[in-house]
Design a protein around this nucleic acid. Structure first.
Lengths: 121, 121
DNA sequence: AGTGAATATATTGGTTGGCAATAGGTAGCA
DNA sequence: TGCTACCTATTGCCAACCAATATATTCACT
């Protein structure tokens, strides 16, 4: 996977892995890696600024958790975050449809064929 | 569609619309727009530098065509361009699979869990 | 003849955002 | 003692898409 691959889609990834429950930064990295089958390896310089930004935007809440001397900062979705996640999923659909239609016009015409198994939203 | 939408995928788009045959810059813009159902509106400041870059890379050939006083610069795929296009399509598949698996884990399992090459943590 | 829209190419400068590099720390094991 | 994994965080780089701008032709309409 080329560098800069997730550009423009990072927010959706972060919100999505936080959907099932709170995670700390390091766990977010491994969660994205596992969910993507190893294809996506985010860096700390990528996610920490992004998590801060999402928190500033009110899409996440963070809280420190102490395990002995160990400190973890756990992030969880806010209601606004869940709504934004839904929007990101819609945007992702539109994005892949648009690019796919240009890249593979024969197999992915802009107007949907009858067999799409994924009902919108 | 937000600005910067095609970031990282522009090359594939350009190569793809040139696959059926040569086009000039302006026609490329309208071709992408039509193929995407109006979702993708590329700017001249986006495609002309990109076309020059692709030509420098040997993926395109360009030639001036005169229609009376009108000058058009037509671009067409080279053999290397066709090979690169095939690679871009593969990369697009992998990209959408990876992001999709993170964004919608239920409907898009990452990979067969039978053979995880990653030694457990 | 004049106006406007569409056709057509090209460059400049700005912004954005993921990433490499770097830095600091805890914990467990050989 | 060193190594590895775990964990958070910041800085600066730079690729690349885009808005704005410049220039020119062609055609429909008035």
């Amino acid at each position: 996977m080329k560098t800069d691959a997730v550009r423009g889609h990072l927010d959706g990834l972060l919100l999505a892995v936080l959907e099932p429950g709170p995670l700390h930064g390091y766990a977010i990295i491994t969660a994205v890696q596992e969910r993507s089958g190893g294809a996506l390896e985010l860096r700390t310089g990528t996610i920490y600024p992004a998590l801060n930004r999402l928190e500033r935007l009110g899409l996440l809440d963070s809280s420190w958790q102490a395990q002995g001397e160990r400190r973890r900062r756990c992030y969880e979705l806010t209601e606004a975050g869940r709504r934004t996640l839904a929007g990101e999923r819609t945007a992702w659909q539109e994005f892949t449809t648009a690019i796919g239609a240009v890249l593979n016009p024969a197999s992915a015409p802009a107007s949907a064929p009858a067999s799409d198994p994924r009902p919108a939203t």
